[in-house]
């Protein structure tokens, strides 16, 4: 494996006694969009969590731009963690109901020590990118729709300009228009930053349209 890429190398993972991934390889090169399909329970989400460095594989390893990653979650250096962003299926579960959309988007910046003023500017810029109007930014998750909340999650995912973006059924709960918009925003970001994108979906038409190549996990 050469060049910039996020890769899972022979990873296995299990929950309790149930093995969900058995020596799986997946390679996402910079600038590439990889589709991932497979029946439910085939370990698609687990693979995404492994690649997002949120879960430790039982065996095998994840490599980020050629370097094998050891450890998981907080054990991974911040600079490495923020190179990979993940977008979940349910934006409600993925956001803190106490925070406003602006705080949700700015949180990764604040957590890594960016001054408030700078974070505010970047939040406004990102909100504009994902198509959130300013009046929505002061609301909390319960007062916006799933589509609007997922846009906020996308803005948060892009806040550190990640080199890789993992979308775990990120548009499954969205209507066609919002889905197309989210995909367009990600596509534009990808072109600009030559980012690697993983799209997990059970919608064959979506993968055919969006991904450069599709990996079936079954």
């Amino acid at each position: 494996m050469t060049g910039r890429a996020l890769a899972a190398c022979q990873v296995s993972a299990s929950y309790g006694s149930q093995r969900v991934l058995d020596r799986v390889d997946l390679h996402i090169a910079a600038g590439e969009t990889v589709g991932l399909s497979g029946p439910s329970g085939s370990g698609k989400s687990t693979l995404a969590r492994l690649l997002a460095l949120l879960h430790r594989p039982d065996s095998g390893h994840v490599s980020l731009d050629g370097a094998a990653v050891t450890g998981t979650r907080h054990q991974v250096p911040v600079a490495m963690r923020t190179r990979v962003a993940i977008l979940f299926q349910s934006p409600r579960a993925a956001t803190d109901p106490r925070l406003t959309l602006a705080e949700i988007i700015a949180e990764p910046l604040r957590a890594t020590g960016t001054p408030a003023e700078q974070a505010r500017e970047r939040t406004a810029e990102l909100a504009d990118t994902v198509g959130l109007t300013t009046d929505l930014l002061t609301r909390r998750p319960h007062a916006v729709s799933d589509g609007q909340l997922q846009r906020a999650c996308l803005a948060r995912a892009l806040v550190h300009r990640p080199a890789y973006l993992l979308c775990d059924e990120a548009t499954a709960m969205l209507d066609a228009s919002t889905q197309a918009h989210v995909a367009a925003v990600i596509g534009e970001y990808q072109r600009r930053h030559s980012a690697g994108v993983l799209v997990i979906s059970h919608d064959a038409a979506l993968l055919a349209r969006w991904a450069d190549r599709v990996v079936d996990l079954s």
Binding site: R49, R81, I86, F88, A93, A94, D96, R98, P108, V159
Partner: peptide, 25 residues
Amino acid sequence: RPFIDAAVSGGAGRMRVLTRHLLPH
């Protein structure tokens, strides 16, 4: 919960996760 995963992934340290995301709840 995924929102904690999101915070970790966004670079929040242990103390930040505890004080900003866990304890307030």
